[in-house]
Design a protein around this nucleic acid. Structure first.
Lengths: 230, 230
DNA sequence: ACAAAAGTGTTAATCTTACACCCATGT
DNA sequence: ACATGGGTGTAAGATTAACACTTTTGT
């Protein structure tokens, strides 16, 4: 078969972080090339002998120096033929979560700068990256309600109030504190530690830990995680 | 930027049909080329100036002569580098539903044959198409429970028992007839017609129709469709 | 009259929602 | 003692699950 196809394949990653009660997106600014001085998602072209998955992980490492906690394929953007002004590029977008609280992003190198932006205050973005981020945000919101992925945005040990806040922030909803705690605890997938968080004010709060093994086991035997308040 | 990338981009469609209480998948057999005498999904390479969406629709028309009722992107298969023995091909798989009961598939042309296969009795398949179909089946099962896509597998006017059966078959579950009917009717998105189905035995049954407009309106105002029985 | 599938209600159990006060600490 | 956030229980309402008999038709 003679096949002359001139489409390039790229991957892009939408990396979400959560800090200071805000949902952030990781963006990079390249100092050279077509993207000079424009903020964009982490991403790049796929190599001939590289899986898509390897490609994203490589870009995450190269461009931001990070390894994410959660990664899944989001959507393949290929219906806008001119999304890249240079030539036809189809991009497989990935959705990633990371505990960003103590993360040090790759410092300004010669090549690029990586920075967190609150999702409600994004800069001008390259290509169709704004649309990609919007798609990712919807995925995050819906997935949060039926898979315990919120924990991948928090440190290993976290306060109940942090978890609660994460849900309220990302879902943009008020959630009853008592009902929320009751439901999460009823699932028996997080465990109390002996430690306390170091909040400055108020009564000290216990730190909790997500038990991923326990969740996996429950999940396999048909358990459905669900957080879905009015 | 100098970019030498040698990856080809294809689309594949998993078309589901429902007939005789069975879930079927549409497969084609090409009489020439690499796929000679192998059953495979409808699909092919994307043209340089064609959206992904146009590519799938074109293949559906060319290879099977059909227009589907429902189409959405499923997943992009690009982690198995050797999924195509010829060269590196990344395939964007689409998930499609069609009312197959009265569908006449493109008859044996010189080029190919299109045929329905029960999902529980698939032939040997080309490439990684078995895996793609498995992914699609999971998507169908989960989507059926939270979006009214079952109607896209039925004729415009259908019997309640057909709908019920479709759910039982695809979800592989027994569902209480009374509770099912009660719940579906409570959503107020299907309407009774004046007509009766032409079953041979038993009491005549009314035909129903899905009111898509009504569903869209409800959906926009926050209504959630959900069919989720123990 | 019988076989076959359609149509229909009620009750108990479970889950969800709404709601407010006391607790432990630092200042 | 007061300010701050942490921790907890209960009752009403809504939803779900379990369950079986009657109806309409063709033979």
């Amino acid at each position: 078969m003679e096949l002359k196809q001139n489409i390039k394949l790229a991957v892009d990653a939408i990396v979400f972080g959560y800090a200071d009660n805000k949902l952030n997106v990781l963006l990079i600014k390249q100092k050279f090339g077509i993207l000079k001085n424009q903020w964009a998602l982490v991403g790049g072209f796929v190599k001939d002998n590289e899986t898509l998955n390897d490609a994203v992980n490589r870009e995450l490492k190269e461009e931001a120096g990070i390894k994410v906690n959660y990664l899944e394929q989001l959507y393949t953007f290929g219906d806008n033929i001119n999304r890249d002004p240079r030539f036809r590029v189809v991009s497989v977008a990935y959705f990633a979560l990371i505990n960003s609280t103590k993360l040090i992003l790759k410092a300004d190198s010669d090549a690029e700068e990586a920075k967190w932006f609150p999702i409600n205050n994004l800069p001008e973005l390259a290509f169709d990256h704004k649309e990609i981020i919007a798609t990712a945000q919807l995925r995050l919101q819906s997935k949060l309600t039926y898979q315990p992925i919120g924990f991948d945005l928090l440190p290993k040990e976290f306060l109940f109030s942090e978890l609660e806040n994460l849900y309220c922030t990302i879902l943009n909803k008020e959630i009853d504190r008592r009902n929320f705690r009751k439901k999460i605890l009823s699932y028996d997938i997080i465990e109390e530690t002996e430690k306390y968080g170091n909040k400055i004010k108020g009564r000290p709060a216990k730190l909790f830990r997500f038990n991923k093994q326990k969740y996996s086991k429950l999940h396999k035997s048909g358990f459905l995680f669900e957080i879905n308040f009015a």
